[in-house]
Design a protein around this nucleic acid. Structure first.
Length: 465
RNA sequence: UCCCCAGUAGCUCAGCGGUAGAGCGGGCGGCUGUUAACCGCUAGGUCGCAGGUUCGAAUCCUGCCUGGGGAGCCA
């Protein structure tokens, strides 16, 4: 089903069983090669990685127009679908009518026929979707986003929309962006301090760092829920794995413990990666060829193998007995560093690893205390090259234990009155995890920098476009 | 935020104390059912910004800005 009259998508044309018949295609010129008697135009409409070759003969009334075409122009073409005489494509269109919809001055248009660096393309994020790389990225990203919904929907989970603006200022996940309508040049004051009672919400508000606490509310009513939306971190993180605005998937399941959650995480990742391979074979082959020649085999390996389970204590023992020299110390009670995680998942196990039961002191207050009083039911899913891709836990459902943990963490229980209410009225064991969507796309495609797997990256000092 | 590296033509880079170069892209011309087509000619740069050293700075030094790699924080 299409909504634009006579136009046929490039993908639909190239996927046809046979040639023949008149078609109309519309898209953007990738390259043009002139000949004495004939001119070739490669056009793309983003529906597929493949270009469509348009042939215009010199005898055509529109041939003069063709001479004005260059990379970036938009065109509308009517012609006959033929078997191509050339080797690099199955079909081509012999144009009978050509219309230029929009010019692109070749002296100014920044995209060229050759390859550009990813750094340069980031500076022209409004044009980079027209490149093979970002077209492929957008299609894989779309497919994975759809797979996330279908995975949960097929399993009876309800999709919950949690708020992006929150008054909880310490959800334990880093610095937050302030949301305010106050005049920053001249804010209302009360006893010398900014009077937040005058602000839009009558109190300090922020952009959310996680929908987890709200998702728990719905899990304790609808049992199986998930969120999928943008989250924000005001950390001054300058790495290839961090964004100030990123998308997170957060399932939350009632009547579920950490073992059940680990199973869910494993099934989930396999489903999403399978979907990318099955539905975007050309795009994945492109990434495999140009960016990471292990991308496809890595995903296939994950889909066909079971994840390794390791407790934090076992992971420490493994690291201590590895004989490896690490920059950071390995000792029970200290958090695993990137180098440790990568050693485990890349060098020792060679596939995803679920590390569970971390020391309570390095994990958030809401994670369920184990009987040993020292560890909590937390889990991290580690994957080669990226490291932590999922962080989750069984939640503390016992009100008294949760209150203790909040006090130890220096949190004011009054601010979490509704969160505590969930433990007071009909509490049940429950668990959930968070998955960084961009990191998942990054992992699947083999792209090195997270800024290249989101359409418009938001990073410190950069909010262009 | 910390450590390291880099900013020279539209893009990718070379030049690393003596006054600016290549390839690609652009323009013009030629040739060919072409495939990042090919061949010839040609235009195009206050060498990131601000100071300093020097007879002389793209080149050495200092500061700042921007980008990249790594680390921390995490997803």
């Amino acid at each position: 089903m299409q909504y634009s009259g006579q136009r046929t998508r490039v993908k639909d044309i190239l996927d046809r069983e046979t040639a023949g018949g008149e078609v109309m295609v519309q898209g953007w010129v990738k390259t043009r090669r002139s000949s004495g008697a004939v001119s070739f135009i490669q056009i793309s409409d983003g529906s597929t990685l493949r270009d469509l070759q348009i042939v215009v003969e010199q005898s055509s009334p529109d041939y003069a127009l063709v001479e004005t075409l260059n990379t970036g122009c938009s065109v509308s073409v009517v012609g006959e679908l033929l078997e191509s005489q050339g080797r690099n494509q199955k079909y081509e269109i012999n144009a009978t009518k050509l219309e230029v919809l929009g010019q692109a001055d070749p002296e100014e248009y920044p995209l060229q026929k050759k390859r550009h660096t990813l750094e340069f393309l980031r500076e022209i994020a409004h044009l980079r979707p027209r490149t093979n790389t970002f077209g492929a990225m957008a299609r894989v990203r779309n497919t994975m986003a759809y797979a996330i919904h279908s995975f949960f929907q097929e399993r009876g989970f309800q999709y919950i929309q949690t708020p992006m603006i929150t008054a909880s200022d310490a959800e334990g996940a880093g610095s937050m962006f302030r949301v305010t309508t106050l005049d920053l040049q001249d804010p209302p004051r009360r006893e010398g301090l900014v009077d937040t009672a005058e602000d839009f919400f009558g109190q300090p508000t922020f952009l959310t760092v996680s929908g987890q606490l709200e998702a728990e509310i719905f899990a304790l009513a609808m049992t199986d829920v998930y969120t999928f939306g943008p989250t924000f971190r005001a950390e001054n993180s300058n790495t290839s794995r961090h964004l100030a605005e990123f998308w997170m998937v957060e399932p939350e399941v009632a009547f579920c413990d950490l073992d059940g959650l680990a199973e869910l995480a494993e099934d989930f990742l396999k489903y999403v990666f399978s979907s990318a391979l099955d539905k975007c074979p050309e795009d994945m082959a492109f990434f495999n060829q140009w960016y990471d020649n292990t991308a496809i085999s890595t995903l296939e390996g994950i889909i066909n193998s079971s994840f390794e389970r390791l407790t934090y204590t076992e992971a420490i023992k493994l690291l201590e007995s590895s004989g490896e020299t690490f920059e950071f110390p390995v000792s029970w009670g200290l958090d695993l560093q990137s180098e440790h995680e990568r050693y485990i998942t890349e060098k020792r196990i060679g596939r995803p690893v679920v590390v569970t039961d971390y020391p309570r002191d390095i994990k958030a207050f809401y994670m369920r205390m184990n009987d040993d009083g020292e560890t909590v039911r937390a889990m991290d899913v580690l994957v080669p090259r990226i490291g932590e891709i999922i962080g989750g836990s069984q939640r503390e459902e016992r009100e008294d234990v949760l209150l203790d943990r909040m006090r130890q963490s220096g949190l004011d229980a009054e601010n979490y009155w509704w969160y505590l209410d969930l433990r007071r009225y009909g509490t049940v064991p429950h668990a959930g995890f968070g998955l960084g969507f961009e990191r998942t796309v990054q992992f699947a495609t083999g792209m090195q920098n997270i800024r290249d797997v989101i359409p418009f990256p938001r990073t410190p000092k950069n909010a262009e476009f």
